[in-house]
């Protein structure tokens, strides 16, 4: 069980840290083991910051993160992250990428190979072990990134817009694959996306974040039965939920956009002074 208690994060801006930006403000969430929770919210509302805090890459200003009652401080082996950008290492082959974390943790070569092969199988990349990521499509690179995270056997996987750079069709296919992987591994997944359809296709619950400072505006249960196939996406229940989430998101997105424009102005005046 993952528990977020009153998480807040304030960034200091500029060299002297005089001005600040409140990215997260009192985030509370409990995620059950094996649950799939999506987070949607306007750009700049603090989604990536939230994941960095949960993953221990940056400290919270306030609040705490617990896994089964045990506090997370700093990078934690129980948590694995998958990023949006090309984070696979182009100087390593596919299998070396997947085995990288094991190698850094002193796992023997034979065991590394075996576990990496298993994960490459799981994400559907068998036959590409010795390819370079530079030869692979964006979708295949994300599979490599997912395998690289899975091989460390995390209990909780944080995915920050992992399919954000993919086209719609690839996104659908790889989304279904992710659900299969999720079932097979039993991992808990937190998933940030801009795509409401994707959130509804994948998750058990969907948290809608407000514009900055980031809070959870509402958390919606998704009772649409699994497995959810292509037909599910044209059902009324599916579209109702999409509509409802869109309504929740719309006003926040507008606020978020105004903030972004406002910030450019402020940043300009700061630079002048």
């Amino acid at each position: 069980m993952l528990e977020l208690r009153n998480l807040s994060k304030t960034y200091g801006l500029g060299d002297d840290r005089t001005s600040t930006i409140v990215a997260l403000d009192g985030i509370d969430l409990t995620v059950e083991e094996g649950e799939f929770v999506s987070i949607i919210g306007p750009t700049g509302c603090g989604k990536s910051t939230l994941f960095e805090v949960i993953g221990g890459l940056t400290d919270a200003t306030e609040g705490r993160v617990d896994i089964d009652g045990d506090r997370v401080d700093g990078p934690d082996e129980r948590i694995g992250m998958v990023f949006q950008d090309h984070s696979t290492f182009p100087w390593l082959s596919v299998i070396e990428n997947v085995a990288f974390g094991l190698r850094m943790n002193g796992v023997s070569k034979a065991e590394r190979r075996e576990r990496a092969h298993e994960m490459i199988d799981l994400v559907g990349l068998s036959g590409f072990e010795d390819a370079s990521p530079t030869e692979l499509s964006g979708g295949m690179n994300q599979r490599v990134a997912i395998a690289r995270t899975l091989v460390m056997d995390p209990d909780i996987i944080l995915m920050d817009e992992p399919f954000g750079a993919l086209d719609e069709q690839t996104r659908l296919i790889i989304g279904n694959e992710l659900l299969r992987i999720w079932r097979e591994t039993g991992a808990t997944i937190l998933f940030v996306t801009h795509n409401i359809n994707e959130a509804v296709q994948l998750s058990d619950r969907i948290a809608v974040m407000s514009a900055r400072p980031g809070r959870f505006k509402t958390i919606v249960d998704n009772d649409i039965p699994r497995p959810r196939d292509d037909d599910t996406m044209s059902t009324e229940a599916f579209n109702d939920l999409v509509q409802r989430l869109w309504t929740e998101l719309k006003s926040e997105s507008r606020k978020g956009m105004e903030q972004q424009e406002g910030r450019t102005v402020t940043a300009g005046s700061e630079a002048d002074s």
Partner: peptide, 24 residues
């Protein structure tokens, strides 16, 4: 993204320099 992946895998400073920054 490279360095974030390295930090997520809990690399030491030395490992980060040797296995991420240097090759990258």
């Amino acid at each position: 993204a490279y360095t974030a992946a390295g930090r997520d895998m809990n690399l030491s400073r030395w490992q980060m320099l040797r296995y991420v920054y240097l090759p990258a």
